[in-house]
Amino acid sequence: MVQDKVIYADYSASTPPHPEVIRTMSEVMEQIYANPSSIHEFGGQAEQLVKRARGVIADALKVSPTEVLFTSGATESNNMAVLGAVRASRYSKKPAHAIVSAIEHASVYACYEQLKREGVEVTVLPVDSNGCVRPEDVEQALLPETIIVSIMHVNNEMGAIQPLEQIGTLIKQHPKAVFHVDGVQGLGKLDVDLERWNTRLFSLSGHKIRGPKGIGVLIRRGRVPLEPLLYGGSQEQGLRAGTLNVPGIVALAKAIRMAVEGQADNKNKLEQLKQKLIGYVSDIPELVLNSPADAHGAPHIVNVSFPGMKSEVAVHALEERGVIASTQSACSSKLHKPSRVLLAMTKNDRLASSGLRISLDAEMSMDDIDRIGQALHGAVSQLRPLVQLER
């Protein structure tokens, strides 16, 4: 039976909107409802709100307002970046090559699968035992015809932080190659520096940083040529047709500003929570820690495996004890397949089939971590005989 207080520990999948974000979005929905593309006064008011929000986001990420493109979320942003960049380049009829890491989110990885079907040569980069892409592998994979390289900031399943500055320096030596970074899991927890990383395309999603669902952004630095995914209007510099989501855009701007302003404090708090949770994991012999415990790992994600036990069974056992966790990416968790990310990292099917992700928030308390630790002990004790029977 679920206990009275439920501990939500699936913040990598989605976060509760901040109360200020909810108030802002509600006020805009109530008061500013005109289409920002309309030429009348009400449309102009909506347009001004969008312009102001674009400026807030640009300031937070240290880019130009003209480099901020609004989308429906990170999935669209990633599709626009990958498919848009490669398809725009193919008008030249020259061979195209693209590079992606083996641990990208499905919204990136599936784009590269589609590019293969379109005749593009794709190189998939492996990761090391920490779940990190090796810069030397990127260097070897880069070709004169490379159009785009996609390496995420923080892996959403096991939390590995990628060496973006080193990789970006290598890509800079290939002027035709565009560096795309899925930044969804890093903002608000770690420093983001697009200039230092040489990142030209950068994707974000509102609901991962206490903003609303259904709104995201693609940062396009240096006017990277993109082929639109949606046609029918001239919005967003002709790259994204459709009426702008004014309440979502304004709420997203507030969420991004708050995430950037709170980043240092959030990181310190999360590190303390994570280390305490890892201590509980270390006390349970059946559990294998997949997340990097050192500087290679993000402060908010702890991924463990319970070899011999299906991930979804462990998730439900925790839920019975009042803890909400997850298996892999929420977009892939219902597939009942071994985690592609953990398989790339561990090369072990048993570990990849039994992964459990606990993702934290800076507003959680040490008491919450104690509850999670106790739930882990209880779940493993309950399920241990089933694993032994299986053997």
Rank of each mutant, 00 (worst) to 15 (best):
G73D: 03
G44D: 11
K62E: 08
G73I: 10
G73Q: 07
E47I: 00
T71I: 03
Q48S: 10
V56S: 02
A53F: 03
T66G: 07
A74C: 04
G73N: 08
K51W: 08
T71Q: 06
R54G: 06
A53M: 10
I57E: 00
F70M: 10
A60W: 02
A74W: 02
G44E: 12
A74M: 02
A53H: 08
T75E: 12
G73A: 11
R52M: 02
K62W: 01
A58G: 07
G44Y: 10
D59V: 09
G73V: 11
A74Y: 04
V68Y: 04
Q45R: 15
V56D: 08
K51F: 11
T66E: 15
Q48K: 13
E67V: 03
H40M: 14
S72K: 10
T66M: 07
P65L: 10
E47P: 00
S72V: 13
G43N: 04
D59I: 06
T71Y: 05
E41S: 11
V50I: 15
I57F: 00
V56F: 06
V50E: 00
Q45T: 07
H40P: 04
T71D: 03
F42R: 15
G55I: 04
A46C: 04
V56Q: 03
R52W: 01
P65W: 13
L61W: 02
F42E: 15
F70C: 06
F42S: 14
V50A: 08
G43I: 11
G55S: 13
V63I: 15
I57R: 05
F42I: 05
T71M: 06
V63S: 05
G73C: 09
A58V: 05
P65K: 14
A58N: 05
E47C: 03
A74N: 03
V68A: 06
K51R: 14
G55D: 12
F42L: 14
R54C: 07
E41M: 08
G44I: 08
A46T: 03
E41R: 13
S64R: 13
L61N: 05
A46E: 09
K51P: 01
F70T: 08
T75S: 13
G44C: 07
S64D: 11
V68L: 01
A60K: 01
V50G: 00
E41H: 09
E67H: 04
A74I: 01
Q48V: 02
T71E: 05
A74Q: 06
